[in-house]
Simulated scan of single mutants.
Amino acid sequence: MGRQETELLKGVLEGAILELLRDRAWHGYDLTAHLRELGFTDVVEGTVYALLVRIERGGLVDVEKVPSEKGPPRKVYTLNDAGLARLDEFWNAWSAITARMHSLRTEGTSSS
């Protein structure tokens, strides 16, 4: 992944995580693995865990600790109503930005 793609990914990774949490509960390791399966191959666990901490502190998820066969209980994250609202904001912003970028690419600077 090139530097520019990495920087763009940093800006949208929270939205990607919130979108995955919309449909089911996840814990960090499985969430990271699934993101990699979806093509986010350079995403590392530390980045995902840091985002999950920020999302949790922001009150966007509900967290449940579930027993683990391999050690301490694991945190499982579920999107709550505040998280759904943030996700809607993300998709609205994404649509606006992509529309502007598409317009810029197709129209260029000729409309100035």
Rank of each mutant, 00 (worst) to 15 (best):
E19H: 05
Y49Q: 04
L21D: 04
L38I: 03
K65P: 01
A96K: 02
H34C: 12
A50M: 08
E64Y: 11
A50N: 13
L79G: 00
A16I: 09
G15P: 00
R54I: 09
S103Y: 09
G2P: 00
T98N: 03
T78E: 11
A25E: 13
K75G: 08
E37S: 15
S110L: 15
G108D: 01
D23M: 10
K75M: 02
L87M: 04
L79V: 06
S111V: 14
K10E: 04
K10L: 00
E45Y: 13
E56Q: 10
I55T: 11
G15C: 00
G39A: 15
I17Q: 00
H27Q: 14
E19Q: 10
A96L: 12
E19D: 08
S110A: 12
R54P: 01
D62T: 06
V48F: 09
T6C: 09
D30G: 09
D62G: 04
L13F: 03
R24N: 06
V63Y: 03
N80Q: 03
Y49S: 08
L21P: 00
L104P: 06
S111C: 11
A16F: 05
V66M: 10
M1P: 07
L52W: 11
E14C: 03
I97F: 02
D62I: 01
S110M: 14
A82P: 01
L35C: 10
Y49G: 02
G58W: 06
A82R: 15
V63K: 07
V12T: 07
A85P: 05
S110Q: 12
L31E: 07
A96M: 06
W94G: 00
W26G: 01
T6H: 04
S103F: 07
V53R: 03
T6V: 08
L9R: 08
D23R: 14
M1H: 13
G58Q: 02
N92G: 04
V53D: 03
T41D: 08
L84A: 09
F40W: 15
G108K: 13
V43C: 01
D81N: 09
R54K: 07
L104R: 12
A93Y: 10
S110D: 11
G2H: 02
R22W: 02
L52I: 14
T106L: 13
A25F: 04
L38G: 13
Q4A: 06
D30A: 10
E37F: 09
R3P: 02
G83I: 02
G58R: 14
R3V: 05
G58L: 05
G71D: 05
G11A: 10
T109Y: 06
K75R: 05
V48T: 07
H102D: 15
A82V: 08
K10R: 02
T47E: 08
E89W: 07
T109M: 13
P73D: 05
D23G: 12
S110G: 14
T98H: 00
E64F: 10
G28I: 01
R86D: 05
D81Y: 14
L38H: 12
R57M: 12
G71S: 07
G59M: 15
G108L: 02
R36M: 01
P67T: 13
T98M: 04
M101K: 15
H102K: 15
S111Y: 14
L60C: 10
L31S: 00
S103L: 03
L52M: 04
E56A: 06
A85R: 14
S68Q: 08
T106P: 00
L51D: 09
L87I: 04
E5D: 13
S110V: 14
E5T: 12
